[in-house]
Design a protein around this nucleic acid. Sequence first.
DNA 1: CCAACTCTTTGTCCTGGTCAAATACTAAGC
DNA 2: GCTTAGTATTTGACCAGGACAAAGAGTTGG
Lengths: 308, 308
Amino acid sequence: MASIPKNAPDKGYEVSIATVERDTGLSKDTLRMWERRYQFPRPQRDSNGERLYSRSQVERLRLIKRLMNQGHRPGKIMACSADELHEMVTETPLTSDSSHDLGATLRLVRTHQISELRQHLAQILMKQGLQHFVIRTVAPLNQIVGDAWMRGELAVFEEHLYSEQIQATLRAAISNLYQPSDAPRILLTSFPNEEHRLGLLMVEALLTMEGATCVALGNEIPIPEIVQAALAHRADVIALSFSGAFQTNVAVAGLKDLRSGLSQDVAIWAGGSGMDRVRKPTPGVIVMRSLEQVLDVLRDWRVAHAAP
Amino acid sequence: MASIPKNAPDKGYEVSIATVERDTGLSKDTLRMWERRYQFPRPQRDSNGERLYSRSQVERLRLIKRLMNQGHRPGKIMACSADELHEMVTETPLTSDSSHDLGATLRLVRTHQISELRQHLAQILMKQGLQHFVIRTVAPLNQIVGDAWMRGELAVFEEHLYSEQIQATLRAAISNLYQPSDAPRILLTSFPNEEHRLGLLMVEALLTMEGATCVALGNEIPIPEIVQAALAHRADVIALSFSGAFQTNVAVAGLKDLRSGLSQDVAIWAGGSGMDRVRKPTPGVIVMRSLEQVLDVLRDWRVAHAAP
DNA sequence: CCAACTCTTTGTCCTGGTCAAATACTAAGC
DNA sequence: GCTTAGTATTTGACCAGGACAAAGAGTTGG
């Protein structure tokens, strides 16, 4: 279904270690170390001796990462068969409204019916309201589309197209809601190398909906710059989004750095599937483990900061 | 201001190689290689022999990074004194003379008055109409903001903020115009490594305005995927945007590749400041040398394809 | 002025080693 | 049984120094 990206001889689909690092969130060092220790993954080599990972290897790596997020250790699971791995994953139940068939939406993406897709999304949004739309429709859709993409069932351009349409829909909704008003002032952004935009947009939609004042800084801002921005905008909260492919240690280290750079009365909220693996709480950082929790955390903040 | 993260002995402020990588965008490999080749940066070592970079080293690295983005090469600038480096940054020539109105807009960015900025932009849009807004306001503003950023007069987060606000304004305008209707069907995208979004959005605004059917694929689509997408969407035109930072030869090679992959009755339009340096026309590729020209090219297409 | 060629520069990848921190395991004490 | 302290193992991040392809600069000839 999907085409071959480059000048691949036959079955293609082979990618460099840098690509695997970006797509799985496993560092090059870790990938090489695993190969040394566990004999997996053992990628092919190109004419220059450089690693070429196959699609199935990347897929397995993703699965392993997911299991590690659930607390498993690499040494144990590395030896398991593909079937065993699949059994171990505790499927995250999609919190979707059964009233809407997400598969139908996915089908529109695959058949490239953009205007229909756009209209379909607008319709669901109207029917469910923004909050439900974000939580019950967009979030599980992202999951489905992401899965399909990593299985190679979706082409890059199809995934991008989906992302663009969701962006258009959410941004239109946010734009309509916009009125600079209530506390808290929330700065939305992500760390360098975190390019995923939809997570931030979803949160922005939810928070704007609740009347918070959102300042969207866009993605990939270096930490010292975030600190600067927090001062410049007199932010009450910094909200950060981490995708599943973000390196956990980098995220945690970054959060610590950010915390130590900010005044204590600026809150830090971190969310996204990149936070799944973080078990030990970082002092002064609130981890939001689901989109619903965003609303709880906002409520808590308002209670704590209610004018006396 | 920032507190000392870890077991720093006295004056602290020393950071690990991972932190430097994150905050400067220079990879660990590159940092170590520079140390080997140019004897800079030469960080301290902790008890375990691991690098500890000082604040001033990180600052200098940032400066070097900026100069490299302007086309300087590391080998040359690495030997310069701090003063020389600063001179080089400020020497960046202005590419256009800024009119007064635009200065006011820039001032809003610098003083972080987002709601005022947003309102200001909306106002100009209403006053000028979308076409003039894009051509006379957004395009020169991009230029000015880009220049200011190059000179280090604008922080990263300020530049991102500007970009977000323009995006919001343009996307809202496009969204309001949307009606899937007329020919040609135009696919908007960019090659891999071309991340600049505003150029594409501006073109999308102009084309949508004129009643063309735009399919925004987003940035950074591999060439074979563009071909696939063209087929899937039965595109009449592929429109591509290249920023000034994009490698000219890569762009030209890519355009040739794309041309040879597409049926001859699909047009290719290429624009953006990355095309300025391209002299020789590529057969079957129309280069648009200004935003105004986008409209001409569209008109030409329609004339050529008028139904008999 | 441009095209083809060579030489130099530069960043990414490689191997294989080391070690601190995190985690699991075990034994002792309440 | 349940916590606590101490020990063993696992794990990922870092290190040095080598190799090479791709990008860029310089050169020559049409």
